[in-house]
């Protein structure tokens, strides 16, 4: 078992990916994927930046007093960047840099957790539709089409108002409106694999449907799930920012990158930095996530490697 690890890892980069087989081989496939990912320079830089951002967000309470981000300071409103306030202050005198870091805690949480919701829903529905086919497939795919033809933002606003805007609402709502693409991908994989020999074999020895779905077929669709989930985080961040900007998402005084821009329009003239920094933060973060998604696609999808 251990012999296959060095042999696969040392294989030339354009050797076909072997998925499945014995345990040791599966592990080495991920190692090969990692080596391929590392060669995507932009993705590696993006991953480093994102890790830095995550570390800052986690360590925020230790590094920066929360007061700076939350308590108004009437004597220091609309200050431009200085050594005391690295990125200036907003209309009630809160430090923009501190707010950005505290906001990243909220925004990143929403981004990642809503994708967890989306992956759970999408994978479950896609697997059931693709594995069982027939009526279940029909109903689920009609539902998917219906949700896909909904202009998401309209429903997001309605849902957010009806459930009461909060971080938890944003996570659930964004998750519930972004599982469709994933469901389709998973369904397609299941459709193509459900009559393959290894599935039939598992069935003949009496494996339950649930076990076949989870243990035998799902691992084969891990790569597209990982890529779609990564890109999903970027989309979720953009959506959260939009809804919060409209005043219907995360509610002040809790800062999020979106709601920091809520009043920005009134201060274009005097304090352009209020508008610039939160947007740049969103842009850079989403850009990093998209680069990582790109790198993961190159690393995990054997079909795109020759591009």
């Amino acid at each position: 078992m251990t012999e296959s690890i060095p042999s696969l890892a040392a294989a030339p980069s354009n050797a076909p990916l072997q998925i499945g087989g014995r345990r040791g081989e599966i592990r080495s496939v991920w190692r090969v994927a990692w080596q391929r990912f590392v060669r995507h320079r932009a993705a590696v830089i993006a991953l480093a930046l994102l890790c830095l951002e995550g570390a800052l967000a986690l360590a925020a309470p230790v590094l920066i007093p929360a007061d700076l981000a939350i308590r108004p300071d009437p004597l220091n409103i609309l200050q431009p960047a200085s050594s005391a306030h690295w990125l200036g202050t907003d209309e009630v005198g809160r430090d923009i840099f501190a707010r950005l870091i505290y906001a990243s805690r909220i925004s990143l949480t929403i981004g990642f957790l809503s994708v967890v919701v989306a992956v759970t829903v999408g994978t479950t529905l896609g697997a059931v539709a693709g594995y069982f086919g027939g009526a279940a497939d029909n109903v689920i795919m009609r539902l998917t089409d219906a949700v896909l033809s909904i202009p998401v933002l309209f429903f997001l606003i309605v849902l957010s108002v009806s459930l009461g805007p909060s971080v938890r609402t944003m996570i659930v709502v964004i998750g519930l409106l972004s599982w469709m693409e994933l469901a389709r991908i998973i369904r397609a994989t299941f459709l193509s694999l459900r009559h393959r020999e290894f599935v039939e074999a598992a069935r003949t020895i009496g494996t339950s449907n649930a076990a076949i779905i989870i243990r035998h077929i799902l691992p084969n669709s891990l790569a597209p799930i990982v890529v779609a989930a990564t890109l999903g985080v970027g989309n979720a961040l953009l959506t959260e920012a939009t809804v919060s900007y409209l005043g219907l998402g995360v509610q002040p005084p809790t800062p999020s990158w979106g709601n920091m821009l809520f009043n920005a329009q009134s201060y274009f003239f005097n304090a352009p930095w209020i508008t610039l920094y939160p947007g740049m933060m969103i842009l850079v973060t989403v850009l990093c996530i998209n680069f990582i998604g790109d790198g993961l696609r190159d690393a995990l999808d054997p079909r795109v490697r020759d591009r």
């Binding site: 970027g234 953009l238 920012a241 939009t242 900007y245 979106g258 821009l261 920005a264 329009q265 274009f268 508008t275 610039l276 939160p278 947007g279 969103i282 842009l283 989403v286 850009l287 998209n290």
Partner: peptide, 10 residues
């Protein structure tokens, strides 16, 4: 990666 509304604001 640009939020539409932010591009509008800028």
């Amino acid at each position: 990666a640009i939020p539409t509304f932010w591009l509008g604001l800028v």
